[in-house]
Design a protein around this nucleic acid. Structure first.
Lengths: 144, 144
DNA sequence: CGGCATCCAAAAAGATACTG
DNA sequence: CAGTATCTTTTTGGATGCCG
């Protein structure tokens, strides 16, 4: 049970970190190094977190299906990412007590919100590959 | 000069990547390990990339102003992140040839689009701190 | 099948010193 | 001021073996 201890600590540092005291004091601020929102954001936008959330937007999936869906992810990192997102209340894990094990992962309502946002980013990236690549070519041309 | 000497393991994994050559060859796919969109996405959602883009949404900033705005970022990582985003065509760097140096960073039109998306995520994170924290408390309660 | 524990290599990140 | 160079620490990730 490590609940209310950390809250006071966060609030204390938040006060010293936020540049705009009056209005923003009550709102969490991702720009503050010690704000909880920053940790949440980093879990969501982590290398595999983005792809797990986007994948689960397509529906409930088993561990191995996720592993196949997300190219390049290792077993270890997938398990780790799923645990983090489960703990943050984004992912629901349902394990059927059978042998061999059968475990299904899906999005919670909270996770679905986050997933829609990351999906927008993923989709935007897919659509703007040409622009970025031509920008890179120009940049690399200017330098060596 | 860092060349390709230790490619053996990396190439081995890259080779096993894209499972559907025919249809998806024309559409970039973030889920494919070797797709360019994946690299772009990872630059955008990198630890500091998100915060740089969100900061610059507030307006043009100098290096030191960005450093102050983004709590916890080191000089080195900020410089590195800015270079990556500049190369990807998201950030515009304007250096005035004076002493002491005066360098301004701003978003390109392309970067502004990405920035709006990441800002949504950052803002969402700020707003859902309570939900996530209570989910964590419940999770930690179920376990030890 | 869906993990977890361990070990090790590689990459990312931080601290510090220095420069135009 | 806005970086670069270098060194050290930390984190990440992959490989392997084990288990229910």
């Amino acid at each position: 049970m490590k609940v209310s201890i950390e809250v006071s600590k966060v609030k204390a540092r938040e006060a010293e970190a936020s540049p705009k005291p009056g209005l923003d004091a009550l709102l969490p601020d991702v720009f503050a190094a010690d704000c909880a929102s920053r940790g949440i954001l980093e879990h969501i936008v982590s290398r595999w977190g983005v792809l797990v959330l986007a994948s689960l937007l397509e529906g409930t999936m088993r561990f191995s299906a996720l592993r196949r869906r997300i190219g390049g992810v290792s077993e270890k990192m997938l398990a780790q990412t799923l645990q983090t997102l489960e703990r943050d209340g984004m992912v629901l894990r349902e394990a059927k007590p059978v042998i061999p094990p059968h475990v299904e992962y899906s999005l919670t309502p909270l996770g679905r919100q986050a997933a829609h946002l990351v999906w927008s980013l993923a989709h935007w990236s897919e659509e703007h590959v040409p622009q970025v690549e031509s920008a890179r070519a120009a940049y690399d041309g200017r330098r060596g």
